[in-house]
Computed example of a mutant assay.
Amino acid sequence: MTTVRESGRQVTIRHADRPGDLGWVVMTHGELYDREFGWNADFEALVARIVADYAVDRDPDREAAWVAEVDGERAGCVFLVRGDRPGDAKLRILLVDPSARGLGLGTRLVRTCLDFARAAGYERVTLWTNDVLVSARRIYESFGFVLGEEERHRSFGPELVGQYWALDLAALEARDVPG
């Protein structure tokens, strides 16, 4: 757990291991993405599957989830789970509540996730996002993630452009990344 003061507020990044954390992740994703992007309950169902798979089948040496708190209230999250190939991990469901934006939570969460990935022995971290998530994409780019491919889809209501990104962790160690 790490705690810092940012703009007069107490910011803590901790493991998502308290009762209610996982439910909060699902609920907040559903409500926030509906409010901000008009996404339907299919998105909340996807997040619920990701969270359920993590809760049931997590390898604690290779997978983790974190919650960001601001002044003791949950305000963000990120997950790191096994990837589809040996040596790969997936960064999943990064979120920062609008009330806590501008405090650097997204960058702190991603840094925590990538530090864990390196310590766990992963070589590469991949992620899937959508082009409308501009702030998250900026964070990924700042760490050196590279866009691999894009595809149009209509999974959560509106037409979207899904994006696949990847980061070679060896390249990350050589970069001066935000922090």
Rank of each mutant, 00 (worst) to 15 (best):
R137C: 04
Y140D: 05
V161M: 03
R118M: 10
Q163H: 04
F156Q: 05
Q163E: 15
E149Y: 00
D131S: 03
R124N: 05
I139S: 04
Y140Q: 02
L103V: 12
F143M: 03
C113V: 01
G104H: 09
L109Q: 13
D115F: 00
A117K: 06
R111M: 08
R124G: 04
G104W: 13
G148K: 02
Y164D: 09
E159Y: 06
T129G: 04
G104Y: 09
A136G: 14
L133M: 15
N130R: 10
V125N: 09
E141F: 08
R138Q: 10
R108I: 11
G121T: 15
L147R: 14
I139P: 04
Y164G: 01
E123S: 06
R152Q: 14
R118P: 02
L133G: 09
F156I: 01
G148R: 13
V146C: 07
S142T: 07
T129R: 02
L109P: 00
V134C: 03
E159L: 08
R137W: 13
T129E: 11
I139G: 05
R108H: 03
E150P: 00
Y122N: 06
R118E: 14
T126R: 09
L127G: 07
S142N: 05
G157E: 08
G104R: 12
R124Q: 15
I139E: 10
G148A: 02
G102Y: 04
E141Q: 12
G144N: 14
R154M: 06
F145Q: 12
G162P: 01
S142K: 02
L103G: 09
N130C: 01
T112K: 13
L105S: 06
R111F: 02
L147A: 07
Q163C: 11
G148T: 11
E141L: 13
C113I: 02
V110M: 06
E141S: 07
E159P: 00
W128R: 11
G148S: 03
E123P: 01
R152S: 13
G144T: 10
T107P: 01
L127Y: 03
T107E: 12
D115L: 09
T126L: 08
G102D: 12
G102R: 12
F156T: 09
L103Q: 13
V132T: 15
E141W: 08
E151G: 01
G121A: 11
V134P: 01
L147M: 07
L133Y: 05
P158Y: 13
L114D: 09
D131Y: 02
G144F: 01
Y122P: 14
A119T: 10
V161D: 08
L109N: 10
V110K: 09
E123C: 00
G102S: 06
S142P: 12
V134Q: 05
Y122A: 04
N130Y: 00
V110H: 08
F116E: 13
F156E: 07
E150V: 10
G106I: 08
V132I: 08
G157V: 10
V161C: 03
G104P: 05
E151H: 01
S155G: 11
G144S: 06
R154H: 10
S135N: 10
G121H: 13
A117N: 10
E151V: 03
L133Q: 14
A117G: 07
A117V: 11
D131W: 02
L147I: 03
F116K: 06
Y122R: 00
C113H: 05
V110Y: 11
V134E: 15
G162Q: 12
T126D: 11
R124K: 11
A117P: 02
P158G: 02
G162L: 04
R152C: 02
F116W: 11
R152A: 15
P158S: 04
